[in-house]
Amino acid sequence: MDFVLLFVFLAATGALSGLIAGLLGIGGGVVLVPALYYVFEFLGYESDRLMQVCVATSGGTIIFNSARSVLMHHRRDAVDWSVLKRWGPAISLGALAGVVGAASLRSANLSVIFGVIGMVIGLYMLISRPHWKLSDTMPGRVLASAYGLVIGFFSAMMGIGGGSFGVPAMTLYGMPVQKAVATSSGFGLLISVPSFAGFLIAGWGLPGLPPYTIGFVNLPALVVIVAISMTTVSLGVRLAHYLPAAMLKRIFAVFISLLALNMLTKGLVALSM
């Protein structure tokens, strides 16, 4: 019965993560990281590296969700490939640095860091207005590289797609939110591939992790979630192109804020014990 419940829970989580990946361009990690943590806690696994398993497994699913999402957005001519080319190398480099950070810090510290930053991003998306811009043109290569390093680092560290940080950054430079969401799905692919490889290496041979975990990646959870989420990404992409921009921004802000509050609360409770 526990196995059946686990499968149903992971399948439901995968379906929702795929929908969010297509809708918001954030790879579904906004749902997966806390959901996986609750699943492993329910099964009785306690480890100082449990959060790393959740982050790494979430990152693995983002490879598939982001690839499908960016392809479907591209078919609608919504992806800005020039931005991906300019920001991409720094994003991937930042992702590798994020893996090193995630592997070396306590789970509670990771939760607090993301919680604070996530709440700031969520608040910005809720209260920002279209006329809030730093420029009407995208930044040059040097500044784009700086943004890419930051986006890759924090996204890989928390097992989420690049849209959590990339969408606000791009909209500040005048990019429409739908186009920013579509382009950020490409960020997720640039982040998840190097970080997935990094987490496989960083957690190799560590004791006390859930069964069938290679490195920090739990294979059963990865397979179930990917199999289900791939079927719902297309629905999210279609919704992203039909919902009004203001509504899409509010949806994005609510999800980021909820995740950030959850992570912040967990981190502060753990640090106080």
Results as ranks from 00 to 15, higher is better:
Val181Arg: 04
Ile160Thr: 06
Ile151Glu: 06
Phe216Val: 00
Phe187Tyr: 08
Val150Lys: 11
Thr232Gly: 09
Ser164His: 05
Ala221Trp: 07
Ser195Tyr: 01
Gly208Asp: 06
Pro220His: 03
Thr183Ala: 04
Ala197Lys: 00
Gly188Val: 05
Val224Ser: 09
Ser229Glu: 04
Pro220Ile: 06
Ser195His: 02
Leu189Phe: 08
Ala182Arg: 03
Ile228Val: 15
Ala156His: 11
Phe196Thr: 04
Leu200Trp: 00
Ser229Trp: 11
Thr213Met: 04
Leu149Tyr: 08
Gly186Ala: 07
Pro211Val: 07
Gly188Phe: 05
Pro210Asp: 05
Val217Phe: 06
Ala156Gly: 09
Gly198Gln: 04
Gly148Cys: 08
Thr231Ser: 15
Ile225Arg: 10
Pro207Val: 05
Ala182Asn: 06
Ala180Lys: 10
Gly148His: 09
Met175Ser: 04
Val217Ala: 01
Ile214Glu: 02
Gly174Pro: 03
Pro194Val: 02
Phe199Gln: 01
Phe196Ala: 06
Ala202Gln: 07
Val223Ser: 12
Ala227Gly: 11
Thr171Val: 12
Trp204Met: 13
Phe154Ile: 09
Ser155Ile: 11
Val167Ser: 13
Tyr212Ala: 11
Phe187Met: 06
Pro220Arg: 11
Ser155Asp: 00
Phe187Lys: 04
Thr213Asp: 04
Gly236Arg: 12
Thr232Met: 15
Ala197Ser: 12
Tyr212Phe: 08
Gly148Asp: 06
Ser185Asp: 02
Thr213Trp: 09
Tyr212Val: 13
Val223Cys: 12
Ala197Leu: 11
Gly236Tyr: 12
Ala156Ser: 14
Tyr212Ser: 09
Ile191Val: 12
Pro220Gln: 04
Pro220Phe: 08
Val150Thr: 04
Gly215Glu: 00
Gly162Phe: 14
Val226Tyr: 02
Val223Phe: 14
Pro194Leu: 00
Gly152Trp: 03
Phe199Leu: 04
Met158His: 13
Gly166Val: 11
Ala182Tyr: 06
Pro168Met: 10
Phe165Asn: 06
Ile160Phe: 10
Val233Gly: 13
Gly166Leu: 13
Gly166Thr: 10
Gly203Leu: 04
Gly236Gln: 07
Leu172Ser: 08
Ala221Asn: 05
Phe187Trp: 05
Val217Asp: 01
Met158Trp: 10
Pro176Leu: 13
Gly152Lys: 14
Gln178Met: 06
Val223Asp: 05
Phe187Gly: 00
Ala182Cys: 08
Phe165Ser: 01
Met157Glu: 00
Gln178His: 14
Ala221Ser: 12
Leu172Asn: 09
Gly205Tyr: 02
Gly166His: 07
Ser192Ile: 01
Thr171Glu: 13
Phe153Thr: 08
Leu206Val: 06
Ala169Thr: 14
Ser155Asn: 10
Phe165Ala: 07
Tyr173Val: 04
Phe154Asp: 01
Leu235Phe: 13
Gln178Arg: 15
Pro210Thr: 10
Leu222Ala: 07
Met175Ala: 05
